[in-house]
């Protein structure tokens, strides 16, 4: 399909992104570049210097809130994308409220308990809505371990094994791979299979 045609289709789609860290910021930028119509992004946190090893922010943005700053960065890449940015620590109730109109939800939290919360919420409240979730992205290498596993409308992207820790931190290449694979799953869901 020609790029203009995919763009025309994506223009009417809304994606919810929960978390604007390594997964969320990179997945959002990928979707913005291909011309998604609307992104609803949420994060409670501020940008720290330690985030710059993987997150789509700049040195002069340290100290700012992530969600509105990601909106700014997306605007600089593709001003046609409508971005709704929320500085909020999402609860189950907020997930239902903010993401009810979305075509697909992208889970991009850091903490396992938050991942569990949003997956349970979406599976019970919106069983027909696809959710794409990032699980296992710590460290470097192991490209061949990164995969997509499907369970009905739940898509798990990552190595499914390696949890982040001080000894195994999240860093740009692997986090970026998983984030872009998640965006790629979103495109497949919206446009149908291409490959």
């Amino acid at each position: 399909m020609e790029f203009q045609k995919t763009k025309a289709k994506l223009k009417y789609k809304t994606i919810g992104i929960a978390g604007c860290g390594g997964l969320g910021s990179n997945a959002a930028v990928a979707l913005a570049r291909v011309g998604i119509g609307k992104l609803i992004i949420a994060d409670f946190d501020k940008i720290e210097e330690s985030n710059l090893n993987r997150q789509y922010f700049f040195f002069d943005q340290i100290g700012k809130y992530k969600a509105p700053t990601l909106l700014e960065n997306i605007n600089r890449i593709n001003p046609d994308v409508l971005v709704e940015a929320h500085t909020i620590k999402l609860t189950s109730k907020d997930v239902v409220e903010l993401y009810k109109e979305c075509d697909v939800i992208v889970e991009a939290f850091d903490k396992a308990e938050m991942k569990e919360m949003i997956v349970e919420t979406v599976l019970s409240e919106f069983p027909a809505k696809p959710i794409v979730c990032g699980v296992g992205l710590a460290g470097w290498g192991g490209n061949e371990l990164i995969k997509v596993e499907r369970y009905d409308n739940l898509y798990i992207v990552g190595d499914h094994i390696y949890e982040t820790s001080e000894d195994d931190p999240p860093i740009a290449p692997r986090v970026g791979i998983v984030a872009n694979m998640m965006a790629n799953v979103v495109l497949e869901l919206l446009l149908g299979k291409d490959k």
Binding site: A108, K111, L154, T164
Partner: peptide, 9 residues
């Protein structure tokens, strides 16, 4: 299905 969630994002 037993899907485990691990931290990292």
């Amino acid at each position: 299905e037993i899907i485990h969630m691990i931290s990292g994002g």
